[in-house]
Amino acid sequence: MSRIDARLSELGITLPGAPAPAANYVPFVRSGNQLFVSGQISNGPEGLIKGRLGADMDVSEGALAARFCGLALIAQAKAALGDLDRIKRVVKLVGFVNSTPDFIDQPKVINGCSDLMVEVFGEAGRHARSAVSAASLPLGVSIEIEGIFEVE
C-alpha cells in the first residue's frame, strides 16, 4: 500500500471512481512533470450536488460539495498516475462557485477542497488557488474545481 493510500485509509476516505468525461475533452493531461486535471463537478454519494450559494445552499454545504470535487480530483490523479505517491505537490486549484451575485464567501466554500488536499498530502497539499463565482455551472451543480499537480 502506498503512503498516500495508507493516509486515505487512516482518514477513513474511500476514493470514488474517476469520473468519465461528459463532453469532448480528456479527464487529465500530463505535460512534463505536471498533471492537469479537468474540472471536477460536485458529485456525492447521493448524486450531483446542485444549488446556488447565497440562495439555497450555505457555506458549509458548499464546502462539503467542494470536498467531493477534491475527492474526484484525487481519483483522477490516481487514474493518471497509478500511484498517488507520485504526486510531489498540489500546485494550484481553480474553484468555481455557482452563486448569487451578492455572495462573497467563495474562498470559504473552496476551502472544503483545499483542506482535503492538506489532510491527504500534508505540506505538499498546500497550493496556489483561485475561487470565483459563476452565474451557473454544468448540470446545475454548485461547485466545479480543476487542479494542477507536480508529479514524478
Rank of each mutant, 00 (worst) to 15 (best):
V132M: 07
E144M: 13
A128Q: 14
R52T: 12
I74E: 04
G51E: 11
I4Q: 04
G147F: 04
L71I: 05
N24S: 13
L116Y: 07
Y25M: 06
K92S: 14
P138Y: 11
Q40Y: 04
D56P: 01
R67S: 09
D85Y: 01
V120I: 01
I41A: 13
V37G: 07
E146A: 15
I4D: 05
L139I: 10
Y25E: 12
L137V: 09
I148L: 14
A75N: 00
L11Q: 07
P138V: 13
A131D: 13
N24R: 13
S2T: 10
D58W: 03
R86K: 13
G112S: 06
G32I: 01
N43F: 13
F28K: 00
R67A: 01
R126S: 09
E10I: 04
A63E: 08
I148E: 14
A72N: 09
P138H: 06
I87S: 01
A80Y: 01
F96Q: 13
P27G: 08
G125S: 06
K92N: 10
A22F: 07
A75T: 05
G122A: 01
G112L: 10
V26E: 15
Q76F: 01
G47Q: 08
R86Q: 12
L11P: 06
A22S: 14
F28I: 06
S130D: 14
I13E: 03
E123C: 00
A134H: 10
E150L: 10
A131Q: 09
L84K: 05
A131F: 04
V91I: 02
S60A: 15
G62S: 11
I143Y: 04
G62Y: 11
K92D: 08
V97A: 04
A18L: 04
D105P: 00
L64Q: 11
F96G: 11
A22R: 15
R129V: 12
L11W: 03
Q34E: 14
L15M: 04
I110E: 00
R3W: 03
V37N: 03
A20K: 15
A80K: 02
R67C: 09
G82M: 05
P16C: 03
V120W: 00
C113L: 08
